[in-house]
């Protein structure tokens, strides 16, 4: 008896979570435009997306922003994590708790505050403001990923390296970096995913001259969900899924 309930309950939960996504994915291959009934298998929505210059530009913009933002956030975040782990300085405890606070800050709050800052500083809304905004919300995720890996290390290892004649920079390049690499890569992938599908912050801090995919999709669905949107969403889903799986595998690798 019990197994039936157990599996039944799990099935119910999974169904509730995944049915909408499944419908979307199925419809992206549905020849029937309105997606209410199955009109046969097709790739034409993907083709339409590929041939739509406006959408493709937005997609390329999105990729550019995500790659730049994830990379910068990873560099800053890794250095911040190393500093938090290795050095004692004033305000260290405050800094590390602020990292968590910024992770939990509602996105809308972050979006508005970023907008205010950009306006106050006179930064034109567009690529630069978008990248800065994305770096801001990606940063804590990188810091947490790298920091928690560093914390798992035997600190004596760094002393051993010094004892064997390694300078500060050698310790960083030969010991810390190789050991933290899986976490750094995972932090980058996570940042990239977060950046790629961000809507709220992007909506506030980008200008009309620089369109990115999630916003473009958002404006398209306001006039009705077109099958093209299903195709784009499916691609985003697959990309995100692959990256998240890779990042999890990297973190799981033994130390």
């Amino acid at each position: 008896m019990a197994p039936i309930f157990r599996w039944g309950f799990m099935g119910l939960v999974l169904t509730l979570i995944y049915i909408p996504i499944l419908v979307l994915v199925v419809n992206s291959f549905n020849a029937s435009k309105y997606g209410i009934k199955w009109g046969g298998f097709t790739f034409k929505w993907y083709e339409k997306f590929w041939n739509n210059d406006g959408l493709m530009t937005a997609a390329l913009n999105s990729l550019t922003v995500s790659i730049v933002a994830a990379s910068v956030a990873t560099v800053i975040g890794t250095l911040a994590a190393v500093a938090l782990h290795r050095y004692q300085f004033k305000g260290k405890a405050l800094l590390s708790s602020m990292v968590f606070v910024s992770m939990l800050t509602p996105e809308i709050v972050m979006a508005i505050s970023l907008l205010i800052v950009f306006m106050a500083l006179g930064i034109k809304l567009g690529f630069i403001s978008l990248v800065i905004g994305h770096i801001t919300f990606c940063l804590p995720f990188v810091i947490v990923a790298v920091y928690s890996r560093l914390k798992g290390f035997d600190m004596k290892m760094l002393e051993a390296a010094r004892d064997l004649g390694a300078s500060e920079s050698s310790i960083f390049w030969k010991i810390i970096l190789p050991l933290a690499l899986p976490a750094i890569a995972s932090g980058w992938l996570l940042s990239f995913t977060l950046s790629l599908d961000d809507v709220i912050v992007s909506a506030f801090v980008t200008g009309p001259g620089y369109e990115i995919l999630p916003l473009k999709v958002y404006s398209m669905v306001r006039v009705g969900v077109s099958p093209e949107v299903n195709a784009i969403s499916t691609i985003l889903l697959v990309v995100s899924l692959v990256l998240v799986v890779i990042s999890q595998l990297l973190l799981r690798e033994d130390k």
Binding site: E159, A160, D163, A166, L179
Partner: peptide, 28 residues
């Protein structure tokens, strides 16, 4: 420490886990 002609064997060994035994010994 890095300039002293003195080396230490640590209690926890503190070997570099990402390096082979050879690279560990060759480090210094």
């Amino acid at each position: 420490a890095e300039k002293r002609p003195i080396n230490t064997v640590f209690q926890s060994y503190a070997l570099f886990p990402h390096m082979t035994v050879f690279d560990n010994v060759a480090f210094g």
